[in-house]
Design a protein around this nucleic acid. Structure first.
Lengths: 214, 214
DNA sequence: CTATATTAGTGTCAATACAACACCAATCAA
DNA sequence: TTGATTGGTGTTGTATTGACACTAATATAG
């Protein structure tokens, strides 16, 4: 009917090197050849937009069954020089542990910390900024923090996740008190041998409630 | 290229009769003839999605220059029986004062309170529920409450707005203390003659900051 | 084997925010 | 003048938050 197209783009976050990082893919074709872009692609004829996001994430990064949530829809007419393309942006969170098996068919995928983003294609810079704000806003009334960690984690690791999301450091005792009194994690009986004093490993108690939603 | 279409739908809220109400339009054509639907329509070729939302709101309700924010994109393949239509939902807030001049070209527009919604077309019921959750969530860290009031308002009116958004009643003294100490409103030197003891009129101090955004 | 460096883990106190609660004031109508 | 209605105001106890410093367990270097 019209020549309008709809895509999904995904801001995939993880924690590497104690910092929040985003997965980007180097573009091999024009426009923006050589720049980096978010993984994503077209929504197919008989596929929900959510399904398209899951599929693209799987195809381009090999990542499955992760936290994935719709972020915002970007619909400026000139955002893609090739024609009218509206994109529904998503953001996803993965624990460091299940990262990027080499199944990636996109040649040049790489992680970038948010302070050192490369030249970005389209309006992807803006999309990443939106995602960052969203995750920051949801940090303390949802479980986004846990989605970035493996099943078992130490309180210090959790604190580092929080710190890297909000971009400032927290008081260790206050942080632990706040988390513990929420009763959303429980200690396992394992410890992490981390070179020095071993750290208690905790596990998230999933009460199937990741916050307010939407 | 494909026969996919993109629409915008708008959940327009106001306060009437001390309750949050939504504007709905009776459908005169199939499908869902006779049911009510949200105002909305197609995104045009050279128009941003935001602009489409503004335009449709203006065309279908006569309302201009109001708070309008993107809500969520609904993209199930079967949500419109006529074909593939993805809709970007918005919500808007108007003060009772500038409501619905008769410029409305949609014949059967009417306000409905959220507890008494009629039969709704498409997935519009779900869209309204999303909007309600969003506005509730933003109530105390943003200025959505003020968008539903005229320029000058009494504290009781503001409290009624809050109560009808969260659906429960609040303590008058605690409410006033909380609002006043935020220093986002200031008293005018006018009073509203409301039959009994006159009420101080306040005015919102716009520090061009309606919350966190996104 | 001892000393040192490193990360884990813990409690108190003061300030602030929050919830519960009841009465007086100004106006209008009868 | 009285009664009904809506506007307006403070205090107190409790919970939450932020600031702050030392001991414990381990690995490594001497």
């Amino acid at each position: 009917m019209s020549n309008l197209q709809v895509t999904v783009d995904i801001v995939l976050f993880t924690i590497i090197d104690r910092k929040l990082q985003v997965l980007l893919i180097r573009r091999l074709a024009e426009p923006f050849r050589g720049s980096y872009a978010l993984p994503g692609g077209f929504v197919l004829e008989n596929e929900s937009v959510d399904a398209a996001a899951h599929r693209e994430l799987q195809e381009e990064t090999g990542v499955e069954k992760v936290f994935l949530e719709q972020l915002y829809t970007f619909g400026e007419p000139k955002r893609d020089p090739r024609g009218r393309v509206i994109t529904v942006a998503y953001y996803a969170l993965v624990a460091n542990s299940h990262i990027l098996r080499s199944g990636t068919d996109a040649a040049d995928a790489a992680w970038f910390s948010l302070e050192e983003l490369p030249e970005l294609a389209f309006d992807h810079q803006s999309i990443i900024e939106h995602a960052q704000l969203r995750i920051r806003g949801k940090l303390d009334y949802s479980n986004v923090g846990f989605e970035l960690l493996p099943e078992k984690f130490t309180l210090t690791e959790l604190q580092l996740v929080h710190e890297s999301i909000i971009g400032e450091s927290l008081d260790k005792r206050n942080f632990r008190r706040k988390i513990l009194q929420q009763e959303i994690i429980e200690p396992s009986n394992e410890f992490r041998k981390t070179g020095r004093k071993p750290a208690q490993l905790y596990r998230f108690i999933d009460s199937s409630n990741d916050g307010v939603g939407v």
